[in-house]
Design a protein around this nucleic acid. Structure first.
Lengths: 344, 344
DNA sequence: ATTAGCACTCATTAGAGTAGAGTGCTAACA
DNA sequence: TGTTAGCACTCTACTCTAATGAGTGCTAAT
């Protein structure tokens, strides 16, 4: 059987109507509301075919049709009118970048903004900066036996690390260490800091080799650890607003799952690694996580220096407004990249 | 009518049973399960009196009794067996303090831990450091026209602030500015930084007075702003687990309310300012927020240098386990203060 | 003062019946 | 051959009713 133009029009009508009402769509509704010029009976025949093709399904014998995962997939891949939504609070984002003292709070705010704008749940990962280069290291004596190490990397990511030392050290010494550390480590990635280099640093530090060790630990700890890739979620409870989650236990399970950052991270990376598409949509059963079989996930990665370093994702019911959500997301991303480039 | 010993025993039995089951408690249940040596009929008479006293109430004529707000209040004030719960992951908290690079992530973790331990929703405020003293300021050239200001205050609270400047400045100059800023501002609170002092700093900086201005802005911005008092919530969705929130719209409203940090802040401060009690419980209608009329709130402030600078709160149903929750909270607080003191 | 007994209340549950939405099929029509 | 009107059929959702049972309050006996 062939998926002709009329079938596609009907499928589109069913999906649009269902996105709107969350109720199964009957033949009469379509005939009345979507000017296709055919009677309910004809539509019924076509619907029967669409069902055979696996694009729609009936919750029960005497109900209208709802889109299947496959139907949504077809819609997302071929039927949507994509419009790149100019994010209207670009100015706001710009301010975020200006005022921000830590990239984390920036991302947190982005998650929040996006959740507000779309009314879905959003997840944003902080940059995974394994490959980031060291831009600046600063050692500051804060207390007699406490040093604050400030580490700035590529993309102005700033991390603070408090170091306890055994013997008091004078700030002059710290300044010298700071100078040498910067001289030796500037522009290096983690992989490039090797044993000979470390030995050289320790030799220089002499009796303070201990500090070098701890600073290197700090550098390693702050930059390397993948676990440090923080995940910010926002608007998880927006989910409660959708009728498909009226079953409270279903909603609860999902929301609790969304609190497990590790799970989310893995899920999104699985999706994104699959291919290089810009914005990726996973629908219903395409999701790995069981609790999300009734949801769709829209994800995209953000880049620094051409490399994916983090992601933004939006989770809603399968019935979510794909067109506008994808539009918003792509608008946000281009605004972000534009600003990031301006900063560089 | 007098609240004699037997009435209190019965009230206690009703409350304990209700805390456990969330079902109205009947006379027969009490007679069977709480060894009071009196028959259901007698208990019914006493219950009738307790109802007249406003301590318990009937959801409907043929149901058992549930505690009223007043009943809970009596229980919390006079009937509980308080046991100061030694927090068994004190070691974990200690590690949090060690590893932490920013106090915020510490507090976030505390909120999370407490939510896990109690299974209620928790809110933790970051320190309100208006009165904090400046301990260290560091200016670091990161890019040609970008300076990173690191500000460390009392209690090792660290804030980073990125400053854009108009003209490139050499690190040597930054070092000199850093030195002077530290010399002049060390140990001062915001109020103590006055115009003459500012002028003096600018005079020193000469053509770089611009930087001084921006650094002072940064200091002001990071330290002063009350809005910067961040609020971390955790486990808000634990609320969904309680039968009293089976009504999904009720739960949703509450959870959304819990996402409005400002509201929470005001609420807790209202509670805490009322008097100087260590741990404070507000029950049901005692709460200002409408959506919380079915909840109880347990709060306490944490101190730095004898002064309240932030709070921790736990929100659960009125039927929450007051004894253990208060125990956990007080255990946590004493552990925290102990560690904070060790750090000073 | 306490308690057994009993009539009464009311929420909850199960079952039966009804209305309505929507389908699939058949036969007529263009 | 494709389209449509008509109709029987299916299934859910809703309403109504009756039965159940937990729990009370009152009365009278101990």
């Amino acid at each position: 059987m062939e998926l002709n133009d009329r079938k596609i029009k009907i499928l589109r009508a069913i999906i649009l109507n269902y996105l709107d009402t969350a109720e199964p769509v009957g033949s009469r509704t379509i005939s009345k509301n979507y000017d296709l010029g055919i009677s309910p009976a004809t539509i019924r025949n076509e619907m029967s075919d669409l069902e055979e093709l696996g694009l729609i399904l009936q919750p029960h014998t005497s109900a209208g049709r709802i889109p299947s995962d496959k139907g949504y997939r077809l819609y997302v891949d071929r039927l949507m009118n994509l419009h790149h939504e100019e994010i209207n609070n670009g100015l706001y984002i710009e301010q975020l970048f200006q005022r921000v003292d830590r990239i984390e709070s920036l991302l947190k705010n982005i998650a929040k903004m996006l959740a507000n704008e779309t009314n879905y749940a959003t997840i944003v990962s902080s940059p995974q900066i394994n490959k980031a280069k060291i831009k600046n290291i600063q050692l500051i004596g804060v207390q007699e036996k406490r040093i604050l190490a400030v580490i700035v990397t590529d993309g102005n990511i700033i991390k603070n690390y408090m170091i306890n030392i055994n013997e008091p050290v004078h700030q002059t010494m710290l300044n010298r260490l700071t100078f040498v550390l910067n001289e030796q480590l500037y522009g290096l990635t983690l992989e490039q800091i090797n044993l000979p280099l470390i030995q050289q640093l320790k030799d220089f530090a002499g009796s303070n080799a201990d500090i070098i060790n701890k600073v290197l630990d700090a550098i390693f700890d702050t930059i390397k650890s993948v676990d440090d890739t923080e995940i910010y979620t926002s608007g998880a409870t927006n989910i409660l607003r959708f009728p498909e989650f009226n079953d409270i236990s279903k909603a609860t399970n999902l929301i609790h799952r969304l609190e497990e950052k590790q799970v989310l991270r893995d899920m999104v990376y699985t999706v994104l690694e699959e291919n290089g598409v810009n914005i990726k949509v996973t629908i219903g059963n395409e999701n790995v996580i069981d609790e999300m079989k009734d949801c769709s996930l829209i994800t995209t990665a953000y880049k620094l220096g051409g490399e994916n370093i983090g992601f933004i994702g939006i989770i809603g019911p399968k019935r979510m407004d794909y067109e506008n959500t994808i539009g918003s997301l792509s608008g946000l991303m281009s605004k972000m990249e534009e600003i990031i480039n301006k900063l560089k």
